[in-house]
Design a binder for these strands. Structure first.
Length: 551
RNA sequence: GACCUCGUAGCUCAGCUGGUAGAGCAUCUGACUUUUAAUCAGGGGGUCGCGGGUUCAAAUCCCGCCGAGGUCACCA
């Protein structure tokens, strides 16, 4: 992009005008335009994301990563060097005990997340437990992040000078804070601007007596010494935070400091941060007025919804939080990335655990197919590529079929493959291997009511309602199954021919066939419909079937 | 109180910088000696939340209103 165009691209805080480089109209192109306009000619572009590991990192937080990831991909596609920085805000305080965690953990409230033990005792800390799961998922998704652990960064002393700087300018910091507080809010909270100015210290101190941030800062010596009172023990001490790194900047300053420290050019955030007067605005003011640096290009994103999660089945202990790892149980990595990146961050969408998943897989498969035929528009093509789809991805097994056929083959890939071949369903072995476990998890963990199970014994109630003619049809089927069934098509033909009668018209024959299928389904699985009968009968245990058909 | 998003076919949604309303599913019809949780072709179905405005032209831009959801003003 030329300088001239870059300047035209806009300086508003929302997505800018389209330019030649974003001719495809894709949201990510517009963001990239904006980044390049705000920060032209950088050696290295830094896109950031960050999460506080205060509990299960849920699927909504993943939008932070997905959005930034798309911008990284776009910048690289334009020949820029870009890195993807991810901050674990694990030096944040433990705020509340989540549902499912031992209530006694309330004694850790106020401590850094890295000082709270793992409730299950498996990980070095509370924070690490959730970080580890998330990092594992990012690996599965093929997203490489440059991780920063804020506890380490703070304790290493890396930020000491910045903390001192903030303290030295605490009057200005107080002023900036006040700028964004409303009179009404001040009244409600009993904040008096004058006292605030005098008592405000822009730091959080983790008491060396209690380990918590329930601390009152008493004085600052202008260098690196700070005196505080631990409110839990009422003890007072002076520390030199250069040697005793227990001091942290509060969020509304911390963020701005890190933008400068890491040279961040783009960072998305949820609307909790982006609301006017919210933490982005405050940090942007700190960045400009105190650190003398532009804030990164922001992008607000809408939250992601979830549907089809049945009550108790979910990890109810964790208050129903859904992590990317859980999503990856049922979504292929490429599909999941595609779902997050295909729409503008401002567009909300739903992830699903119910039959909606069928639609998402189908839509994705069609999209990939059109891409592979070279028919996808540049914008759609780009998103697919960012998601990791390639020209040579093997033919997919429809998810619906993975579920249906998976069940009747006891989830054995080789058997399914054989069945697919015999039934002339085209799909690759690779896709079977990838999707079968997802289909199994989807069905057994989240949609057990969809399971097709052979009855334990004959359906006597249903059989009682059958007349002689229909009983005869069932008997004919049994007889056929006792013999040598050579192929699925042969079985198929027999199934259709059994109810046929020269006396019936075509229409009547169809009705008779439908009735016959219904009878068989009811006898076998107690439902009016099921998987295609020929395939089903071919695959399932013959002796069991014969027992169920013996009425 | 401020701000944000959404409101387009029965359902889920596309519609980028304005130019005669789109897709998938569902439904209906038909084809395949086969109305099966696996095929194919075709059809029907929308006053684009409501009311103004700008324009030769608005689902698309502007203003107002209604409805749904959300965020902040504590902390992060």
């Amino acid at each position: 992009m030329s300088q001239e165009k870059a300047f035209q691209a806009s300086s508003s805080s929302v997505i800018g005008e389209a330019s030649a480089d974003s001719a495809d109209g894709l949201w990510v192109g517009k963001i990239a335009d904006k980044v390049l306009a705000e920060f032209p000619d950088q050696e290295l572009y830094t896109c950031a994301a960050g999460i506080s590991p205060s509990g299960i990192v849920h699927f909504g937080n993943f939008r932070d990563v997905a959005t930034s990831y798309a911008v990284v991909c776009e910048l690289r596609a334009r020949g820029k060097k870009a890195r993807f920085l991810f901050s674990w805000d694990n030096y944040d305080r433990f705020r509340k005990v989540p549902v499912g965690v031992d209530p006694s953990f309330s004694r850790y409230i106020g401590m850094p997340l890295t000082s709270v033990p793992d409730p299950e005792g498996q990980f070095p800390s509370y924070a690490r437990r959730f970080e580890a799961e998330f990092e594992e998922s990012m690996k599965d998704l093929g997203i490489t992040l440059d991780y920063r652990y804020q506890t380490q960064e703070y304790q290493s002393g890396r930020y000491t000078d910045k903390i001192a700087f903030a303290l030295q300018n605490r009057a200005q910091a107080a002023e900036i804070q006040l700028q964004f507080k409303t009179d009404k809010g001040n009244q409600e909270k009993g904040i008096d601007p004058e006292t605030f100015r005098q008592t405000y210290f822009p730091v959080t101190v983790y008491s060396r007596f209690s380990g918590t941030d329930k601390v009152q800062v008493l004085s600052y010596d202008g260098g690196t010494k700070l005196t505080y009172r631990c409110l839990m023990t009422d003890k007072v001490e002076q520390i030199d935070f250069r040697e005793t790194p227990v001091v942290k900047l509060p969020w509304k300053l911390d963020w701005a400091m890190r933008w400068g420290e890491e040279q961040v050019h783009f960072e998305p955030s949820g609307k909790d941060h982006m609301t006017p007067g919210g933490s982005f605005d405050v940090n942007a003011a700190f960045a400009r007025e105190m650190f003398g640096r532009k804030p990164p290009v922001p992008q607000m994103y809408e939250f992601v919804g979830i549907q089809g999660v049945k009550g108790g089945k979910m990890s109810g202990s964790k208050g129903g939080a859904i992590s990317p790892a859980m999503l990856l149980e049922i979504y292929e990595p490429t599909l999941l990335k595609w779902l997050y990146m295909r729409r503008s961050p401002m567009q909300s969408f739903n992830l699903a655990f119910d039959t909606e998943v069928y639609r998402q897989y189908d839509e994705f498969d069609r999209e990939v197919a059109s891409f592979q035929r070279g028919e996808a528009s540049p914008a759609r093509q780009k998103i697919l590529q960012f998601s990791g789809v390639t020209q040579t991805d093997p033919a997919p097994l429809a998810f619906k079929q993975a579920v249906a056929l998976g069940q009747i083959t006891q989830w054995q890939p080789e058997k399914l493959r054989e069945l697919a071949e015999k039934s002339e369903i085209p799909c690759s072995a690779a896709s079977i291997a990838a999707r079968l476990p997802k289909a199994q998890a989807w069905l057994t963990r989240y949609n057990p009511e969809e399971i097709i199970a052979l009855r334990d014994g004959p359906n006597a109630d249903y059989a009682a309602g059958l007349d002689d003619k229909r009983r005869a049809q069932i008997a004919a089927l049994s007889a056929f199954l006792k013999g040598d069934v050579t192929s699925i098509p042969a079985l198929d033909e027999t199934l259709y021919s059994i109810p046929k009668d020269p006396a019936l018209t075509d229409k009547e024959t169809k009705v008779a066939q439908r009735g016959f299928f219904k009878d068989v389904y009811n006898l076998l699985i107690g439902k009016d419909a099921g998987p295609r009968l020929s395939t089903f009968l071919w695959a399932i245990d013959r002796a069991k079937v014969l027992a169920l058909l013996a009425i």
